[in-house]
């Protein structure tokens, strides 16, 4: 298998995630798009590790595990923030959260 198959699939998922972050206005859906981006990065880590031999394969897997852990922490805090926005403004529409807009 070519390593580029995996890397280009990672690029596709990354760009779909970027589109989601930019185009969605619901806070929960923006967090889901961020998960797509993190998954793309994980595919790249594991594929590039497998390209370089056994030791790099293990290193790539370990880094992918760390990214998964941090993604879990990020979703926990992110959803708590979205919940707080909903409680204060009864909406999760990110276009209406423009208090800091100049």
């Amino acid at each position: 298998m070519l390593v580029n198959q995996f890397l280009i699939l990672g690029a596709v998922l990354f760009c779909i995630g970027v589109y989601g972050v930019l185009a969605r206005r619901n806070g929960v859906l923006v967090l889901m798009s961020i998960e797509l981006i993190l998954n793309a990065v994980n595919i790249n880590l594991v594929a590039l590790g497998a390209l370089q031999g056994p030791e790099a394969a293990v290193a790539g897997q370990v880094f992918a595990l760390f990214v998964i852990t941090i993604a879990a922490a990020e979703v926990g805090v992110g959803l708590a923030i979205v919940l707080l926005i909903y409680r204060n403004r009864t909406t999760v529409d990110l276009d209406e959260v423009d208090l800091m807009k100049g």
Binding site: G27, V28, L31, M32, E35, N39, I68, T69, A71, A72, V75, G76, L79, V82, L83, Y86, V92
Partner: peptide
């Protein structure tokens, strides 16, 4: 982690908001 925990968290977030 992803399917078992994070997606369930998302579903709870959707339900609560």
């Amino acid at each position: 982690i992803y399917i078992g925990a994070i997606v369930v968290l998302f579903l709870f977030g959707i339900m609560l908001t």
